[in-house]
């Protein structure tokens, strides 16, 4: 469980996230959506302890993360940043780096570490590409490998920043299934999503952000019923019982 209490912060003196309080319960997938620049990625960085809170506290299972060591945070919270190209490194090496918080000096992997890496590769569907080099893989395969690294970190709380952006549609669906399977293992998953359609598809709860605030945090049904989507994104959602999913449309009188 991750809990934010009156959290504000940003980059240097520039406050991007202001006075956010929210609870992200265990075994739940919460997606944060909002317009570009509303502070969704920043709030994720703060939850990962990578940007300090200017005020307020963040608790991981009741413990203030600002009072924990970097390593202790890394054993409890994993964070996958947005897709970017990394050098020529094999998938297995990349996934093994997920064990970094557990390594002593010298940096040697134990058989236990290896087992966890194998399991993570398996779970992310990346076992067959374990010996490939990252720079030779497609975007979707790279993303599976990166998620496997996050899984190898073996944390209760997983933060994913736009895990599906830039992927082709089939891979988006694969990654979405993978995220759903994380819920079943009882983890707390928080994703920042660019695409509300996908967010509504797999999330238990949706957090809508606008201008640095979370203006609503509720189930997809309740979010769709209210006016927050129109307010924050200028869109409206309608549920089609026949199709079993939400459809999105422009809100007619949206003023940005």
């Amino acid at each position: 469980m991750l809990e934010l209490k009156n959290v504000s912060g940003g980059y240097g003196r520039k406050i991007v996230v202001s006075d956010v309080s929210a609870v992200f319960p265990k075994g739940n997938i919460t997606s944060i959506i909002g317009a570009n620049g509303c502070g969704k990625s920043t709030i994720l960085l703060m939850c990962a302890g990578l940007i300090p809170c200017a005020s307020g506290e963040i608790y991981a299972d009741g413990e203030d993360i600002s009072k924990m060591s970097r390593n202790a945070v890394a054993r409890r919270i994993s964070y996958l940043e947005q897709m970017k190209s990394i050098g020529s490194i094999s998938v297995r090496s990349l996934v093994s780096h997920g064990r970094f918080p557990y390594l002593g000096y010298p940096r040697r992997y134990t058989p236990e570490d290896m087992k966890i890496v194998d399991k993570a590769l398996e779970m992310a569907g990346a076992a067959d590409i374990a010996d490939c080099m990252m720079n030779e893989l497609s975007g979707g395969q790279q993303q599976k490998a990166r998620i496997a690294m996050t899984l190898a970190q073996d944390t209760d709380i997983i933060l994913l920043d736009e895990p599906m952006t830039y992927l082709d549609f089939r891979h988006k669906l694969e990654i979405s299934d993978l995220i759903v399977s994380l819920r079943e293992s009882g983890r707390t998953v928080i994703t920042v999503m660019h695409d509300p359609e996908l967010a509504f598809k797999f999330s238990d709860r949706i957090a809508v952000m606008k201008d640095g605030h979370i203006i609503a945090l509720d189930t997809p049904e309740n979010i769709a019923d209210g006016s927050v989507l129109g307010d924050a994104l200028g869109i409206k959602a309608t549920y089609s019982a026949e199709a079993g999913r939400y459809f999105f449309d422009r809100e007619a009188n949206f003023v940005k």
């Binding site: 960085l45 990962a48 302890g49 990578l50 060591s69 970097r70 390593n71 202790a72 945070v73 890394a74 054993r75 919270i77 994993s78 964070y79 996958l80 940043e81 970017k84 990394i86 050098g87 490194i89 090496s93 990349l94 780096h97 997920g98 970094f100 918080p101 390594l103 010298p106 940096r107 970190q153």
Partner: peptide
């Protein structure tokens, strides 16, 4: 002695930080 840490650092500042470095 730092070569392993350099590999982690090469993944990017935020990723390295989130891995506890």
């Amino acid at each position: 002695m730092l070569s392993h840490d350099l590999d982690v650092l090469a993944l990017g500042e935020n990723t390295a930080g989130s891995l506890g470095m």
